[in-house]
Simulated assay, not measured.
Amino acid sequence: MISGKDITVLIMAAGESKRMQDIKQLLPWKDSNFLLEIIKTAKNSRVGSVHLVLGAHAERIVDKCSLNDLHVDYMINPNWQMGLGNSIAYGVNHLLSLASRPQGILICLADQPLMTSDYLNLMVENFIQNPNRIIATNYTQKTGVPALFPITFYEKLSQLKDDYGAKEILKRYRKETIGLNAGKGIIDIDTKAAYEQLITDTQ
């Protein structure tokens, strides 16, 4: 039977953050920054391991976050400019090259600072009960990430190329997807205004 330890989190943090006009991964948040907090959130959940895909500003992010001291497996996608889909494929192919393949890959974003370990655990619990289904997050009229994919979707994830991430897979396989509600956890922070509002709302 699948357990949380059989599931790997893949955090996507390769983007350039053009709309933010700053390095989004390093924006101050709580006691550290966006990236370190999502890593902490993932590590505090029931998953077995946490992996990270970097791209733009990789050297600075590794240095500022002291990633080499955190025991987090990170990789740098040389083709990060090709978009989120390409970085997902890069990360998934890396996971598939490891000696022990995960039974589920939980894709998270570095720009959802309100995501909680409890919600990730809820995704894991639903996946354990439905190991052949995608467990995704409900948005207004669609599902999106965080999303937990079973082995049967690894090949499709490994072949993503564009900037739409896993959206097309989630759209095409809607009947094979269970959508969960993350509440405020689904808020993406893409602009300075959104970041400033986040700080105002959480003070």
Rank of each mutant, 00 (worst) to 15 (best):
P131E: 05
T140E: 13
K167I: 03
A193T: 11
E59F: 08
N138T: 10
L157Y: 09
D118A: 12
N138P: 01
V92W: 09
K18W: 01
N86F: 02
M115F: 04
N138Y: 09
A56G: 04
R19E: 11
Q81V: 10
W29Y: 15
G183Q: 06
E16I: 07
Y74F: 12
I38K: 09
Q141T: 12
L52A: 07
K142F: 13
A136D: 06
I39L: 10
I135K: 06
L84R: 14
A89G: 08
I134M: 09
K24A: 13
Q129C: 10
L114W: 02
K5Q: 12
V145M: 13
M123R: 04
S17L: 04
I2K: 10
I38E: 04
K18S: 06
I107Q: 03
Q197L: 13
N121W: 05
T191W: 14
A89T: 02
E196H: 15
L70P: 01
E59H: 10
K171Q: 10
I169L: 15
L35H: 00
G85M: 04
R133C: 10
V124G: 07
D31E: 10
R172L: 13
V47F: 07
T116H: 06
L10I: 06
A136T: 04
D163M: 12
D188Y: 14
Y90S: 11
I2Q: 06
Y74T: 00
H94W: 12
L26P: 05
I186K: 15
M115E: 09
L114C: 03
T177A: 07
H51G: 02
A193I: 09
H94E: 13
N130L: 07
I38W: 03
D118N: 10
P102N: 13
D6T: 01
A58M: 05
T177Q: 01
N138H: 12
N181R: 08
W80Q: 05
G144I: 00
K18E: 06
T41E: 02
V145Q: 12
G48F: 09
R60V: 09
I134S: 08
Y119A: 05
A166L: 04
L67C: 06
E37A: 02
D111T: 11
G4P: 00
T177K: 00
R60A: 10
Y139K: 11
S158T: 00
I199K: 11
K167N: 15
L120H: 01
T202W: 07
T143Q: 10
R19L: 15
V62P: 00
M115Q: 11
I151F: 11
R174N: 12
N181F: 09
R60K: 15
V92Q: 09
D111H: 11
C108T: 14
E59M: 08
T191I: 09
G165F: 13
C108D: 02
S66M: 05
I151M: 12
N33F: 05
C65R: 01
M12F: 02
I39P: 00
T137I: 12
L157Q: 09
E155M: 14
L96I: 07
L157R: 11
C108G: 03
N79C: 05
G144H: 05
I23S: 05
D22Q: 12
N79T: 00
T116K: 13
K167C: 08
G104C: 09
D63Y: 13
G48I: 01
T202Y: 08
V53Y: 03
L198A: 03
T137G: 12
K142I: 03
D6L: 02
I187L: 14
D69T: 02
T8W: 08
W80N: 03
K5I: 01
P150S: 09
D118W: 00
H57S: 08
